[in-house]
Amino acid sequence: MQLALEQLGQKVGAVQHLYPLDLSLQPGAVTVLLGATQAGKTSLMRLMAGLDKPTHGRITVDGADVTGVSVRGRNVAMVYQQFINYPSLSVAENIASPLKLRGGLDRAAIAQRVKALAERLHIDPFLDRLPAELSGGQQQRVALARALAKNAPLMLLDEPLVNLDYKLREELREELTQLFATGDSTVVYATTEPAEALLLGGWTAVMDAGELLQYGPTAELFHTPKSLRVARAFSDPPMNLLEAEPAMFGVQLRAADGAAKAAGAARPPPHVPLPAALGGLLTGRLTLGVRAGALRLDQRPGDVALPGSVELAEISGSDTFVHAATSVGEVVAQLPGVHELALGAPITFHLSPDQVFVFGADGGLLLAPPRTHTRAY
């Protein structure tokens, strides 16, 4: 299916839910809608499904205008945040329901398809149970299996894992990635989590406050966000944003108000050397973006040092997230391994100039991406 949105927008009363946007989905691929709550992801998916009508613009499928076609007239499968199953039907009957409605398959073929999907989603021991007898995670797997059974050319998943516990989310993400890779559907998957977008791969559309900010291959957007707004949306923990101004052979970081005293750092803000080719682009007030994973404790040749003091150290899985006050403001570092750091203890982060983003003052557009990449979560 080739789904295209042309100047599609939605306004409810005086509130603009979606600003006019153009988006042509990659057929047979996964497109992730990435953005914070109220970014417009659900509004956009409802328009794609035919549940709502746009205020302006149109939707085409394989070149045919389907803007006014209701959800009943479209071959679409959708899974919501809240798992929705038929409570009076068994798990097997829930999964089989779209197959029976479509027709063309005998009872044996339907049973075989149901069993295969249940096995892939690890719910085959529960085929005879009612949804109410299952856990939340198992019920969501049933809803996913029913959507997959429909084998619709367009599958819409609106944050389907958000209400599940962490371990179950991790398991289902991996399973869904494999299922999408082997299917023929064009998949649209909404999430607030950048790590989920990277895991699913494919293409990503970054949204914010009803606007489509950027669309392209997921890895490309992560490594080359075209603006500060995209960089903020595609960073978890948030990207460190440091004020700077042009200087000889690079940029000079600017001291943050009151930060030097809080950090106990006597030295002036550091100079960050950058390629000479950027000289003509670096004018006015600049912003340097530094991902949390780019800050290290070990020093390497050519590094820039950021001394400061520890404000918070959080151990999460195999990483430690360290919040520190420095002369250029508070920064967050994602350090591999477990580090026990006392509050207020002095600390010095090291950063390679090759791993900074340079954003301009005019709309925060990206002037230069990093020359080397940090690990993607």
Rank of each mutant, 00 (worst) to 15 (best):
Q140D: 08
L286C: 02
P336D: 09
V12N: 08
P246F: 06
P238I: 02
P353V: 15
L341D: 04
W203T: 08
T192A: 14
G279Y: 08
V91L: 10
S43I: 07
A152C: 07
P217T: 02
E220M: 06
Y19A: 03
G216C: 01
E193I: 12
E93F: 04
A305T: 09
D106G: 13
L130G: 05
P27N: 02
P307F: 11
P87L: 00
L5Q: 10
A145R: 08
D257H: 13
V331S: 09
L200P: 03
T320I: 01
L199Q: 14
N94D: 06
F83I: 00
P20R: 06
P153C: 11
P246Q: 04
V322G: 10
A77S: 15
A147P: 05
L179N: 04
V188E: 09
S352K: 03
A111L: 05
A368R: 07
Q334C: 13
R232V: 03
E175K: 10
E170N: 04
V76N: 02
L242C: 04
V356Y: 11
G73F: 11
G302L: 03
L117I: 09
A149N: 02
G136E: 10
A149F: 08
K53Y: 12
R169I: 02
N85S: 12
T191C: 03
A149D: 03
